[in-house]
Amino acid sequence: MLALNLTAFRTIVRKEIRRFMRIWVQTITPPAINALLYLVIFGGLIGSRISEMGGVSYLTFIMPGIIMMGIIMNSYANVSSSFFSGKFQRSIEEMLVSPVSNLTILLGFITGGVCRGLLVGFIVAVVALGFTQTVPAHPLITLLVATMASVVFSLGGLINAVLARSFDDISIIPNFVLTPLTYLGGIFFSIELLSGFWQAIAKLNPILYMINGFRFGILGSSDIPLLHTFVVLLLFILFLGSIAMRMLSTGKGIKG
């Protein structure tokens, strides 16, 4: 069974990568263009009028958050749209009638989401290098935080797709939850600028921990202790992972 599931896992990952590479104009280029615009407008034009933030230039300060935003949004979008398209076209049935285990299905989709998230993150980082020649202070921590955050949002995308009944349903969470939380998660500002009450509120936002953990990996400093970032990431992976497994096991939203 292990050999069967390894082959099936590779098949799902290959299919997922083939899907987002086939439509690269929709999946890969927009985040790069968005990042370019953020860096030009916020980093270059507006940022040049701001002295420093977190001990570095404003452009350098916002760069990790912009990369992380690309990773979060694209990991989520990849799994939610791929899984929901599979439901919509009923091609998900190919998997359900096969002996592949639910865990393999979950890992296959999550790995697909992580691949797109990290690819977009890499491209945005390359774009950012044109503005600020910052080399990651802790490359392994950078990669680990990026990968774990990508897993969290891939899991979120899968849960959203299982529950969704229309394409509108898979755009609600990114538009009304993820985008506000990402913008309020410290991409463009240090939470030290906030008063005590608003700092406490901001710390309820899990994305704050991911962006700051990633910022620590790149810049070597952050508003949040690194341990907190890893605890939040791990808890979310376990929590969302168990929900996703439960959904796949019961067939809720997938089977008749």
Partner: peptide, 18 residues
Amino acid sequence: NVFESVANIVMTSAGYHG
């Protein structure tokens, strides 16, 4: 998946079966 090629659809199904 109507956007996949004919051979890929069959190959992918085989992959799901290990």
